[in-house]
Computed example of a mutant assay.
Amino acid sequence: MPKILLVDDEASVVDFLQQELVFEDYQVVTAADGQAAYDTYQQQKDSLDLIILDWMLPKMDGLEVLRRIRKHDEIPVIMMTARDYVSDKVAGLDGGADDYITKPFDTEELLARVRVILRHEERQQNVKEVYQFSDLELNTKARQVKRNQRLVQLTQREYDLLLALLKNAPETLTRDELLDQVWGVDFEGQPNIVDVYVRYLRHKIDTEADFKLIHTVRGVGYCLRDDHHTS
C-alpha cells in the first residue's frame, strides 16, 4: 500500500481527504503545520511514496517545506493552494512541486493525479538501471542524473520527461507521446505543459553545458541529439 503524507491546517479538509485516500487503499499520515510536516517527513521518508502539501500553513509555509525536502530528496509532491495565481503555480513548480491543484477541487481529480504520479513511480522500478546519451547519464536505481559528471537535481516530472527522451534517443517524440508517457493517458490539462517542462529541463540540463542535447523538432516535438561534433 503506497504511503502518503497529507499536510493541511484545516481539520475538516484533512479528515475528508484522509477518508477518501484510505478508501482507495492508501496509507495516510497527516500534519497540520509546516514544521510538523517536515518533522514527519524526516521521520518517515524511507516509507513515504508521495506528499500532498498545502501552501498556506502555520509555522512554515508549504513552499519552504518543499524547498527543504528538495535539498536531498525527489519524492513526488502535489501542492494544494486556495490562490489561483499563475505566479504561485510557477513558484510552486520552480520550487520542485511535481503537480499543483487549486482549491476548491473535485476529489476525483486529486485522486487521478495521485494515481498518475504513483503509476510513474511503479514503472520506474521496472526500467533498466542506467541510461547514457553523450555526456548525460541517468541512473534509475540511484535516481541520479549527471551531465558531464555534474549532478543535476530534477523534480519527479522533469525526471520522467528526461527518462522518456532518453529511452527513445535520438528519435523524436511528439507532444502527445510525451503527454501519454509522462503525464498519463488520462491527463486532462493543457498540452503546452510539455513545452513548459521542456523549458525547465533545458535550463537544468543544457544551460551550464558546452553544447545542447535537448532539441526542438519544429511542428513535431522534442528529441535528444548530440550534434556538437558535426559542425
Rank of each mutant, 00 (worst) to 15 (best):
D15R: 14
H229I: 01
N168V: 08
V182Y: 12
M79Y: 08
T172F: 10
D227G: 09
T107V: 11
E10L: 06
Q19Y: 08
K128I: 02
K45R: 15
W183Q: 04
F105T: 01
E122C: 05
I101Q: 11
H72I: 10
F105E: 00
I193S: 11
E121G: 07
V130P: 00
D106S: 05
E121Q: 15
E177Y: 08
K103R: 06
G221A: 03
T230E: 15
I117C: 01
L179N: 11
E137G: 02
P104A: 01
E171A: 03
M79C: 08
R67V: 00
M1R: 09
A169W: 06
V185S: 15
V14F: 03
L173F: 10
N168L: 08
G92H: 12
R113T: 03
L118A: 07
I117M: 13
V29L: 15
L224E: 03
L138Y: 04
R83F: 02
Q44A: 12
T30V: 10
M60L: 15
V220Q: 13
N148V: 04
D15N: 12
V13E: 06
S231K: 09
I51Y: 06
W183A: 03
T174V: 06
I51A: 04
D46V: 04
L66R: 05
D33I: 03
D160Y: 14
S134Q: 10
E20Y: 02
F187S: 06
F187G: 03
E129K: 15
P76R: 13
L178N: 07
E64V: 12
E171N: 10
M1I: 05
M56K: 15
Q144P: 00
H120L: 13
Q27C: 07
M1S: 09
Q18W: 04
A32C: 11
N168S: 12
H229N: 05
G189N: 12
I78S: 07
L111Y: 07
L50M: 01
L110H: 04
D88G: 04
L201C: 08
A164T: 09
V116E: 13
D195W: 10
T81V: 00
T40Q: 13
D88Q: 08
R150F: 07
Q44D: 11
D160G: 01
V28E: 10
E74C: 12
T81G: 08
E171H: 13
H72V: 07
Q44W: 14
G95A: 07
I214N: 00
